[in-house]
Simulated scan of single mutants.
Amino acid sequence: MPLGVVVRKVPGVTRWAKWNWTAVAVLPGAGPADWQELRREGEAVEYHAATLPLTLWAVETEAYMVNLADQVPSIYVVMRKGPDDSRPLDVVLATASPYESQDYCDNGDDIVEKVPMPQGLVAWVRDFAVRNHEQEEFIKRRRDRIRVDLVEDGRGDARIRQQSDVFRAPKRVMT
């Protein structure tokens, strides 16, 4: 499903950041866009920054279920610093999987924003997840019955010939 990403630009509160950019909304079924201005209120400006495909995968249904069980189901928008001022950010990804978005949080270069899902999109993701989810049965691993502690090959220091203390360090030989 094509998903438009709305990004808001507001003045920064520190001298190090002139502007603060945040993803604030998504537009399901949006047409193509490239930083089209949607609304301006004083110095705050909202842009339809990009339209990306929201792809759902059958193997990710557990992640979608976790997202839908959250108090506010969300779309995670991943953005990177753009090459110039005309495109300050590149919108890289929009996903419904919190697990996938977590991977982008690890590198420190990407901005990951959590945007609330519209109700129609929540229903679409829920239908897909319920239709494709397969519960995996938990299988507890059992310990092998093989006794590995009976053989003491390679135990201790081979340079010590005495049987009394195999863990003792060798004495320094003075010549």
Score class of each variant (00 low, 15 high):
99 Y>I: 12
154 G>Q: 03
126 R>M: 03
67 N>V: 02
96 A>F: 07
107 N>V: 13
50 A>T: 02
151 V>G: 03
60 E>S: 10
144 D>Q: 13
29 G>E: 08
77 V>D: 07
17 A>M: 06
127 D>K: 01
174 M>R: 15
94 A>C: 13
31 G>Y: 02
126 R>P: 00
27 L>E: 11
41 E>M: 02
162 Q>Y: 08
153 D>N: 06
37 E>C: 11
133 H>C: 07
63 A>W: 05
79 M>K: 14
65 M>Q: 01
147 R>M: 01
19 W>M: 04
31 G>M: 04
159 R>A: 06
20 N>H: 08
81 K>D: 11
11 P>T: 05
31 G>W: 06
107 N>M: 11
151 V>F: 09
143 R>A: 12
97 S>A: 12
4 G>R: 01
82 G>L: 14
61 T>L: 09
144 D>A: 09
38 L>S: 01
115 V>G: 05
159 R>Y: 03
144 D>P: 13
42 G>E: 05
138 F>S: 12
71 Q>H: 07
8 R>W: 02
17 A>F: 06
153 D>V: 13
164 S>R: 15
91 V>C: 11
100 E>C: 09
162 Q>W: 12
166 V>G: 09
87 R>C: 11
79 M>D: 09
3 L>F: 04
102 Q>R: 10
162 Q>S: 14
27 L>K: 10
3 L>T: 02
135 Q>C: 05
63 A>L: 06
128 F>T: 00
100 E>I: 15
138 F>C: 06
97 S>I: 04
113 E>I: 03
112 V>Y: 10
130 V>D: 04
